[in-house]
Design a protein around this nucleic acid. Structure first.
Lengths: 145, 145
DNA sequence: ATCTGTGCAAATAGTTTGCATCCTC
DNA sequence: GAGGATGCAAACTATTTGCACAGAT
């Protein structure tokens, strides 16, 4: 699920957006951005904190909040106790998740038809819709025996 | 958003499902079920606890967990700090949510086309998909000025 | 009578905040 | 040098658990 290939476009974009937004470039924030850049699916704040020993937990949360505000990162609830965060490629395709209720496995998927349906609903709504997320829950093939 | 008309079908079903599942009928659980039965959109555990003064908080959480396990209730993450819970009418239509990122307002919506798209994805997936939820986030008309 | 359900209080887990210090601009 | 960025520890909030007692079957 986790790709080791960094999405340097996103990392690049993230840094410039942060700069434009008036944030200075400190070590903690950069590390969080870099980490999110090489992870394709959701990571919880605690996982990030665990992987980034040198970074304080508070900084992880603060950075995630800022990135979320700039829509560079999206928060997703995958049913576990902690919230997940994953990068959003501006304009690029994004994915949704299927979660196994038995073993907790999370699998990402994409579906153009689903995106179209959501787009349509978004346009009809009285809200100005900026983002969306979809979560399917069920039992994975392995757990299903 | 909150209807005052109890969905007695659901309440009925909930009680029989609970009984079938081997749960005894105690006062706390009944009160939670009744409350969920007359609320059409999501309620947090804390809201339920607040409204049901006589019921212990732990019982609220325990009941919600049991109901969720029986798929009588669905947990939804609406971005706030607490998780929301709302009843699921077996076989009946369900709704999704649009959340205002500015004022927190939650508006439910239904869309057959969206449901179809999700149905299709569910069938294609390697998982045995049992439920799903969709959340749109944006700015409501009022906040948008 | 038995064994589950319930409330209370304590324990956890995740997240946020206060503050002194460090570092970027 | 000034003001944001960071780490640490304390504070909070939501949720879970332990346990003695009440209540359902």
């Amino acid at each position: 699920m986790a790709r080791r290939k960094t999405d340097s476009d996103w990392v690049q974009t993230a840094f410039s957006s942060l700069r434009e937004a008036g944030y200075r470039t400190g070590g903690a924030r950069s590390q969080v951005v870099e980490l999110l850049g090489c992870e394709d699916c959701a990571l919880t704040a605690l996982e990030i904190d665990r992987r980034l020993r040198a970074v304080g937990r508070a900084s992880v949360y603060r950075t995630l909040e800022q990135l979320e505000g700039l829509r560079l990162v999206q928060r997703v609830d995958l049913g576990g106790e902690a919230a997940g965060y994953e990068r959003v490629s501006p304009g690029g395709h994004h994915h949704h998740h299927i979660v196994c209720e038995s073993c907790g496995k999370v699998v990402p998927f994409e579906d153009p038809g689903l995106e179209r349906a959501i787009k349509r609903v978004s346009l009809e709504a009285s809200f100005e819709v900026a983002e969306h997320d979809v979560t399917l829950r069920g039992i994975c093939a392995r757990c299903n025996g």
